[in-house]
Every structure is written in structure tokens, then in C-alpha cells.
Design a protein around this nucleic acid. Structure first.
Length: 443
RNA sequence: GGCGCGUUCGUCUAGUGGUUAGGACACGGCCCUCUCAAGGCCGGUGCACGGGUUCGACUCCCGUACGCGCUGCCA
């Protein structure tokens, strides 16, 4: 038997990728990238016969988004396929025959059961340590069913057979399988195969300690994709659930995690998913990522919002000044739309608040005259022009900034005014000032 | 009920017999400031409980409580 390290992520195609499943996949991925070896993706679709491909698509999408590439499985192929359990019936038949020949199987009302040897089974888990399970009492540990009367297979059996056939060396899975493990080991032994190494990782729960189900906020990886999280941030956050670099680092490069990752250092305690912290970490990533990466992640959201971003240079300039304000990429259109159209909306509350002061319009007018004289249209010049005008008028800087901001963007919040003005350009800015004044005068 | 796993701030964690129990998120206050953020500074909150072992326990052992998991012809 080869000593190659082979692990697998074996999700059931439920139509979405659970955050806990993603973390399991991540730990498998980290383990195999750390040691060198192969990650197999296997779809466990024994029970759900309907549209597996469609339901599995969400899993592929989630894994790919997180950058968790697999070495064998759907889309990739491999020598030990097929990688869908629904297509492996002959293999299961063959192993069933072996067990039957060995006298390990009996029939019960049409279903087939595996006869337990009734012994103690010691699981030597890489995370949880040595655990002794007493399976001698049939009352508490009944013989497990491995095939239903209709011929369909039960998880425990096919899972083991596939791990044998796919030469899996380490089974890294959720702790919910820990109590199943001695039963699995019984099948390995009945087949004369030595069981793989096991590592049961703690579960991810809600903040209140309850189990995370599909409907809970943040349970599905797709929500992070839709909301515009940076995949590297979510992946980083997931690394920190049950594992730690032990040096107080929170933001840590994935290459570094690969280098440091060891199963033995994983916690045994279930972790609560803290969406606030995930959000914060995402903010760290967004703030520190390159402008190119930022544009790459922002682009699909802008396109979806049908914002005209055909001018590449302008897009780049706009995103450069907005970048520091963005937490989630889904917010990019909201923060930038007025840069790209003269048809931007005016927040009536902002207009009312800012232009409530009778001097506001005249100040805007004075600022217009001042800016019209500016030749060197950059943020430094604009800032000093505005500030010296404020001094001349005897008002606060903000008394000029706020009207200008509303005029030029329609709202009271946004990036640094001077940078906005620089990016928009003199002509556009003065035109917007004009329109604002006209609008207010007409009313 | 039985079996298994777990228990350090609200949350994620560092800690492996002697620490003022450290960091991060969240929270409160202050500073900065053209808005919103960001950033900086300060602050409070924690070793589930009870027994041991030991000169000394967050750290080791036992028990209790609580949580989670398994106990399916779900995966």
C-alpha cells in the first residue's frame, strides 16, 4: 500500500455549501497542501436521486470561490472515479459480496445489515486522541443497515468502501461523525483493510450555540459571494475557527497557514460563528488589498448594477478614492453611481439639512466662482482654494464642504470631497454646482 | 435514557504547575476630522461548580452541571 497522503471532501449535494462544510473542506485542503498529497472531491448522492448536478453546482462554486481546488473529482477526473456515489453501484455490489462471503451480512425485512463483531473499538483520533468505544451491547449499538430493501445504499457502508477504493489515508471530517467511526472501522476490518487515520474537527455553531442550519445568517457560502466579501477574507476567518497561528495574528496569508497547519493543533471545542468578526476581517482585507484586486472584485457588482464603466481610467480613479470606504463589494454601486451619470438622485434629507441655512446657496455660488478660476485642478489646490475662501467669508470649512458635496453627489456622505472633485474634473463639477443652484433657486 | 466529545471575557482564541491570565471582534469613552468610515488612546467584562494531587493549580485526577454529537432503512 502506498504511503501517499490522500484526503477527501465528501459532501452531500444539498443545493448549497454549508459554512461548516466549507471549513471541513478547507482543513482537508490545508492538510494536503502542507504535507503534499491529493484532495479528492466525492459527491455522496446515495439518497437524493434528483438533479444531483444542479445541487452539486453550489458546492463547486463555493469551493472554487474560496480557492479550495481539488485534485480528483468532478470536472477534474482521476483514476479512481467515478466520483459520484450514484455511479458506483457495481463497486458496492462487489464489496457486499465479499462481506457476504465472509458471513458478515444478514437480511432483515428485506434490508441488509452488517453483523457487528461485538468488540471494543479504539479510535485513535489525531484531534481527539484515543477513544475506546464499547460496541459489545447490541441493545445500545444495533447492527447497522447497509442497504435498503429497494437496493439503495446507506452512508456508512458506501463511505467506507469509497475511502478504501479511493485509497484515502486521512479522514478529516466533522465531529458529528466521531461516534460513527467505530462502526466504520468494523467494516474496514471485516474487509481486511486497515482503516485510515482519523481527524474529527469541531463543529461550527451559531453565536447562541445552536446548530447552524441552512436558514441561519451566514450558513451558506453563497451569501458571502452575493454580499461581496473577499474570498480570501472568509477563508482566513474560517482558518481561525478551531485553529490558530498562536501568535495573535488575525489576518494571515493563506501560504503562511499552509506552512503552519497541523491537525494536532486543532481545538476540540465547537466554535460559534461570529459574523461581526468575519465582517471586520473582510474590511481589513479590502483596506489592504491592491487597487487591481479591488477593481477585479468590484467589477461584477458594477456590471450587475448596469453602471457604465467603459472608461477604464476613470473607473480606476473613482475606485481608488472610494476603496477605503467599502466594506462589502455589494456596496460599491451605491458608493460610486453618481460618478458615472448626471442623473444621480438627490437625498432630500441631505439637501434639506445642508441648504436649510440661508447662506448655503450663496456660499456654493462663491465657491463656484472660486473654482472657476482654478487652473491646476488637483485636490491640494482645491483644498487650499476652498479653505481660503472659507476664511474670506468668515465661515467654517464645513460650511462650504457640505453644500459642495451634496451638489456634486446628491448625498451627505462620501469620500474625501477634494479627491472627488479632482476625479470628476472641473467641467463636470461646475456644471453640477450650476444645476444645484438652479434647482434651489427654482423652488 | 445509553455512549462519546467538550467547558478561559458575550464571541474567536493564547496559555500546558508559580502570568498583574495575553490578543482580536463586539461594546463604552476620548482624540483626530469636510461627511461617513478608518486610525490612535483609554476602559470594563473570563479560567462552569465541587472535591482531590501538590509548597502551589486555568493548567493534572475524579465527580457534578451545562452544551454539542451519535444512538436511522439521513448524510
Amino acid at each position: 500500500m502506498s504511503s501517499e497522503i490522500r484526503v477527501r471532501f465528501a459532501p452531500s449535494p444539498t443545493g448549497y455549501l454549508h459554512i461548516g462544510g466549507a471549513r471541513t473542506a478547507l482543513f482537508n485542503w490545508l492538510f494536503v497542501r502542507h504535507h503534499g498529497g491529493k484532495l479528492v472531491l466525492r459527491i455522496e448522492d446515495t439518497d437524493l436521486k434528483r438533479n444531483t448536478e444542479e445541487a452539486a453546482a453550489a458546492i463547486y462554486e463555493g469551493l472554487e470561490w474560496l480557492g479550495l481546488n481539488w485534485d480528483e473529482g468532478p470536472h477534474i477526473g482521476g483514476n479512481l472515479g467515478p466520483y459520484f456515489q450514484s455511479q458506483r453501484t457495481e463497486i458496492y455490489e462487489r464489496y457486499l459480496k465479499k462481506l457476504q462471503d465472509g458471513g458478515h451480512i444478514f437480511e432483515d425485512q428485506g434490508a441488509l445489515r452488517f453483523r457487528s463483531p461485538r468488540e471494543h473499538v479504539v479510535v485513535n483520533d489525531l484531534v481527539c486522541g484515543k477513544i475506546d468505544f464499547d460496541l459489545t451491547n447490541p441493545g445500545t449499538h444495533p447492527d447497522m443497515t447497509i442497504r435498503r430493501p429497494d437496493g439503495s445504499w446507506i452512508f456508512h457502508f458506501v463511505n467506507v468502501i469509497d475511502d478504501i477504493e479511493m485509497k484515502i489515508s486521512h479522514v478529516i471530517r466533522g465531529e458529528d461523525h466521531l461516534s460513527n467511526t467505530p462502526k466504520h472501522i468494523e467494516i474496514f476490518r471485516a474487509l481486511g483493510v486497515s482503516p485510515p487515520n482519523y481527524a474529527h474537527i469541531p463543529l461550527i455553531l451559531n453565536r447562541d450555540g445552536s446548530k447552524m442550519s441552512k436558514r441561519d445568517a451566514g450558513a451558506a457560502v453563497s451569501t458571502y459571494i452575493d454580499q461581496g466579501y473577499a474570498p480570501e477574507a472568509v477563508r482566513n476567518y474560517l482558518c481561525l475557527l478551531g485553529w490558530s497561528p498562536k501568535d495573535n495574528r488575525e489576518k494571515i496569508d493563506i501560504d503562511e497557514v499552509v506552512k503552519l497547519f497541523e491537525l494536532e493543533k486543532i481545538n476540540r471545542r465547537n466554535a460559534a460563528f461570529d459574523l461581526d468578526k468575519c465582517f471586520w476581517l473582510n474590511g481589513q482585507y479590502v483596506a489592504q488589498m491592491s487597487l487591481d484586486r479591488f477593481i477585479e472584485l468590484a467589477r461584477p457588482f458594477l456590471e450587475r448594477a448596469k453602471i457604465d464603466i467603459s472608461n477604464d481610467k476613470y473607473l480606476r480613479e473613482v475606485l481608488a478614492i472610494v476603496k477605503e470606504k467599502i466594506k462589502l463589494f455589494k456596496d460599491v454601486p451605491e458608493w460610486t453611481s453618481y460618478f458615472f451619470t448626471e442623473n444621480y438622485e438627490f437625498d432630500s434629507e441631505a439637501v434639506q439639512k445642508v441648504f436649510d441655512k440661508s447662506e448655503a446657496v450663496s456660499r456654493l455660488k462663491a465657491l463656484h466662482e472660486e473654482f472657476a478660476k482654478v487652473d491646476k485642478w488637483d485636490f491640494q489646490t482645491l483644498e487650499s482654494a476652498l479653505k481660503s475662501l472659507a476664511q474670506k467669508l468668515g465661515c467654517k470649512t464645513g460650511d462650504l464642504v457640505h453644500p459642495a458635496r451634496v451638489a456634486v453627489s446628491g448625498r451627505s456622505v462620501g469620500p474625501s470631497l477634494y479627491h472627488m472633485l479632482e476625479v470628476m474634473g472641473k467641467e463636470r463639477v461646475l456644471k453640477r454646482f450650476d444645476r444645484m443652484m438652479a434647482q434651489l433657486g427654482a423652488k
